[in-house]
Design a protein around this nucleic acid. Sequence first.
DNA 1: CACGGATCCTGATGGC
DNA 2: TGCCATCAGGATCCGT
Length: 272
Amino acid sequence: MPELPEVEVTRLSFADRIAGAQIQAVRLGKPLRWPLGCNPQGLVGHRIEAVRRRGKYLLIDLAPQGLLLMHLGMSGSVVFDDFLPPPGRHDHFELQTSHGTLRLNDPRRFGAVVYATHEDDAVARKLLGRLGVEPLGEGFDLADFQRALKARQTAIKQVLLAGEVVVGVGNIYASEALFMAGIRPTVRACQISRARAARLHAAIREVLAEAVRQGGSTLRDFSNALGETGHFQLGAQVYDRQGLPCRVCEAPIKRVVQQQRSTYYCPRCQTF
DNA sequence: CACGGATCCTGATGGC
DNA sequence: TGCCATCAGGATCCGT
């Protein structure tokens, strides 16, 4: 479910409300992708200082020390409220705090919550160490991006999904950004001209920023920590539109499979 | 080293 | 209604 926009929208929906809260209890459900990596009871008494984001991870800063790295996987979502119904079968992590209860619901359990003592300890580095630059930050440099594409032999769609060049672009927004840039998803990254790479660089920022503005995409069940759904999917240009007319040129949208993931593109607008 | 494929898990959907 | 196959927003690991 969650790509960068959904994770950022989730963060914005509870970060201010939870800041300063004291952890009073921790509840675990079934195992997630990785173990928590600490005694859950050891978190009790810690204070939540801030909630940040790195790529598709939420970073929950704790005082006096440590942080939780939370990943929503494919099907994860978070709620934060004073009163929540009793935990359901897919609620696998919960922090009861002085400001309310933070609960992770994740049916497929590809998500994770992992404790790290510092942002650069071995645990955190294993998860965050290979991540590319933040697309909405200052570090997303055009010349660096062009050089990185020149160095990769694989299809541009896969380069975007891998997250080693730039983070946060998942299956929906990769298709959307490539459409906006007029680039065919199957083209090898190294074959993209500098001019087209510049269009893609801009398109990634535009698509992700617009998606955040629209509250993310709700394909089936995404909602932020207030229970609000996203609306970006309603205006998607190509994602999940196989056979439907392109919104620009009316040619039927095509679907191909790359690395076991669906990719959508317009055969007329995305020429090369 | 770089790439392609299998893999983790549960639920929704569509065809027969 | 039931059964089966397919697909789903991610990312790691393993073999070549």
